[in-house]
Design a binder for these strands. Structure first.
Length: 458
RNA sequence: GGUGCGGUGGCGGAGAGGCUACGCACCGGCCUGCAAAGCCGAGUACACCGGUUCGAAUCCGGUCCGCACCUCCA
């Protein structure tokens, strides 16, 4: 089965063929750790995670690297504002990010390099760029000379002239071209800094990804991921510096073969921004909904489409997931026959939809059809369908895999027993009273032939 | 101003020249002390105007509208 992926550089969907047939190498621009993760960060992490998991179905050996940016002016600002030292701040939010992504069933990357551990690699690359006359020293900064790179603008589809027209950028007077970007900048004594051939300073924004991807994956590697907003300037600059460090006017393919960008998340129809106060934080949403529900919501639209985040989308996902689980619970697991997943036509159809540029809406549709088929087939078919569903849920990362810790367990049991006795005596007033009591502690009950079932709502 | 992506039934959202996408909601029925859930069934669609075609939501041209990027951003 062929694997197709949309490449932003060529703007076409193409078959994915790894450089090294035995090994797939992927890099994703990770978060800058200075605050809680928002739902946009989560979309990128979930989509990339799904890409990696799906690739693993076809390729045995997949190496996934996603960095942590722990040097950045936003971090310095946050530290100054809060009074928390930088290293404490970054390690705190680094840890929180990993925990929150884990709650969304995002597997940790194979490597999660930190920018602060790769200063030497960055300095080396900058020196290379200076030697090749692709960068210059001005006003104590090292600046990349955009005009030195022939393919600059290819990823974002903008010529240098176009980038200037109507631009709102403030032009620093020490830059030869307004589009030139900073590779290294001087640090004040109260700012973090490292010794370099150009004095004590720190790296500019883009160089860390170039240095770490090269170090961890070697170049060229296969797929580079990130949010669409990073295409310009971040990824454009990455290509320019990584390729120029190889040789002047080196083609973009020598850095990375496929550019994979996920669409933006809007919040109630508007861009998330601090001024509008509509930034949706993952930890806030997790208080109300499970990780699986959030993940399903994030996968309900195709990854390249914009996704409007609303309460309704979460409620819909919660109901959909609940129906799926209820249908699965009806199946007696000991009657399920083992079948090979590689020959399971139901799973293969599902898989094909993901192999087609991660068409998750289609794959979810197939999953739903399988759920509907689950009850009406003969045992052998049923086993196959059941296995396919379980495997599909696992791949999508929406299977139930965490025990919810139940508080008031004994109280709940006691109330349900009492209600059962009341119902037997046809004392329905008391029975309904108890149901109300239980709902107050977020316990939902359901009377079935096998007795009263209950579940704790988040 | 430049660049890119979209406009599909009440909502979310695939698809893509002829074939029910799917989910959620709603409506009818079964079941139930009630409720919930579940099951069965029905309905509603491709922004607008032209064109190509035997046939267009799908192709072509134009119009309108929305969103994003061009500044930190996932």
């Amino acid at each position: 089965m062929k694997f197709f992926i949309f490449d932003s550089l060529s703007r076409t969907k193409k078959e994915f063929v790894p450089i090294d047939s035995n090994k797939v190498r992927i890099y994703a621009c990770g978060p800058t750790v200075y605050d809680y993760a928002h739902i946009g960060n989560a979309r990128m992490a979930v989509v990339t995670d799904l890409l990696v998991k799906t690739l693993k179905k076809k390729f045995k050996n997949v190496t996934f690297v996603s960095n942590i940016t722990d040097i950045d002016d936003k971090i310095i600002d946050a530290s100054k504002k809060s009074g928390v030292p930088i290293s404490k701040l970054t390690s705190k939010f680094h840890e929180i990010y990993n925990k929150e992504m884990n709650a969304l069933n995002v597997s940790p990357p194979d490597f999660q390099p930190k920018a602060s551990d790769h200063i030497n690699e960055m300095i080396e690359m900058i020196e290379e760029l200076v030697n090749k006359d692709c960068a210059y020293f001005s006003n104590n900064h090292i600046i990349f000379r955009v005009e030195s790179y022939k393919y600059y603008g290819q990823l974002s589809g903008r010529s240098l002239d176009e980038q200037l027209a109507g631009s709102r950028i403030e032009i620093a007077d020490y830059k030869k071209n307004p589009r030139d970007f900073i590779l290294w900048k001087p640090s004040e004594s109260n700012e973090p800094g490292w010794d370099s051939p150009w004095g004590r300073g720190r790296p500019g924004w883009h160089i860390e990804c170039s240095a770490m991807s090269k170090k961890c994956l070697n170049i060229p590697f296969d797929i580079h991921c990130g949010g669409v907003d990073l295409t310009f300037p971040h990824h454009e600059n990455e290509i320019a510096q990584s390729c120029s460090a190889i040789k002047v006017d080196c083609e973009p393919q020598n850095f990375c073969r496929y550019w994979f960008h996920n669409g933006f998340v809007t919040s109630d129809g508007e861009k998330m921004s601090k001024s509008l106060g509509n930034i949706k934080l993952v930890n806030e949403i997790l208080k109300k909904y499970s990780g699986e529900v959030i993940r399903l919501s994030l996968l309900s639209a195709h990854y390249r489409q914009p996704l409007n985040w609303t309460e309704a989308i979460l409620q819909q996902s919660e109901k959909t997931l609940s129906r799926i689980f209820k249908n699965l619970e009806k199946i007696k697991k000991d009657e399920i026959e083992d079948s090979q997943i590689k020959k399971n036509e139901f799973f293969l159809e599902f898989q094909e939809s993901l192999f087609d540029d991660l068409n998750t809406p289609k794959s979810l549709s197939i999953l739903n059809v399988l759920i509907n088929k689950l009850k009406e087939s003969n045992k052998k078919q049923q086993s196959k369908i059941y296995t396919a569903i379980i495997e599909a849920m696992k791949l999508l990362g929406i299977g139930k895999n965490k025990e919810i810790i139940i508080e008031n367990f004994d109280l709940i049991k006691k109330l349900i027993d009492e209600r059962d006795r009341a119902r037997q005596k046809k004392d329905f007033d008391r029975a309904d009273e108890i149901r109300l009591e239980l709902s107050k502690i977020n316990v939902e009950i359901e009377d079935t032939k096998e007795g009263t079932k209950w579940k704790k709502l988040k």
